[in-house]
Design a protein around this nucleic acid. Sequence first.
DNA 1: ATAGTCTCCGATCAATAAGGTCGGATTAAG
DNA 2: CTTAATCCGACCTTATTGATCGGAGACTAT
Lengths: 157, 157
Amino acid sequence: MLKISKKADYALMALQHIATVQSGDVTPGRVVNTKEIAEEYNIPLELLAKVLQTLAKNALIESHNGPKGGYLLARRAHQITIAQILESIEGPLGITDCSHEKNGEFCMQRENCHIRTPLLKVQDSIAQLLNNMTLQDMMGGTPLITIQSPTAQGVER
Amino acid sequence: MLKISKKADYALMALQHIATVQSGDVTPGRVVNTKEIAEEYNIPLELLAKVLQTLAKNALIESHNGPKGGYLLARRAHQITIAQILESIEGPLGITDCSHEKNGEFCMQRENCHIRTPLLKVQDSIAQLLNNMTLQDMMGGTPLITIQSPTAQGVER
DNA sequence: ATAGTCTCCGATCAATAAGGTCGGATTAAG
DNA sequence: CTTAATCCGACCTTATTGATCGGAGACTAT
């Protein structure tokens, strides 16, 4: 439950990759093309292309056409939040159907619904969480402050 | 994005209703049948029945057969967490596909995936959130500490 | 200037999950 | 024993997601 889509997953991977190449590499500022990312992470090329296009449309990355073209970050990594990335791909955050109802348009249960308010609080907490984490926090040598119990480590093979 | 399913939504409404009837009513301890809930909240009867059956199977509520039968809470409201309810209906919490991979079964991107660890942290934070909120917190006269800006109120018609 | 990449965009298809339905078996109160 | 309720499992329909295809346009290296 509460799963994020594959597209959003791909978006995170791609942005993380672009950010890493752009900042720490031997060739800083170099553009990254779709194919490179697709091959690196085994993502279907065409699908990834669509994802990157969407991200470009939402001004998270900039595209450069032609040979030796590709994408690069529109802002610095610490200025791009996870929430912005996810919302670019999946639309606005909403725990329930009634999260962003337009005026006068209510769900069938609205009359007697007692769970709306507490659920909106949950949603808001999640939104805060995603807004406080940036692309920078996902980059290579910067592991996050772990919340998980220390004993739960060492799962990597 | 990150939407919870309608079934889970229905489960929350139903449990909130049962909890309210059971504690604060003129007839405390009375059982509540499916039809009563379905009509109160305009939920398709058959679908709600399935949801309640699932909840019963997961020992969140107890079922009583026969005429004058119905459901009642298996534990007290403050001992039932939102996480338990949601997981009963939608299965274990998992932000990504690779959240609960069985041994040796990895996703295509696993090799070079740099976003898994930070995403698991996000997931853990959400899990904490949902585990710290109980059914009691959703009940009638107990509005939650509001996080939303006070000016965003008065949306009710 | 031109050729060759590369991005861009729309339409389309398949697979999966969600939402919702149906019929009959089982149980217990009256 | 009859009735009304839960219970159980199979089924269908629709929406969403994941993935694919074909071509048009843009840009740069040569």
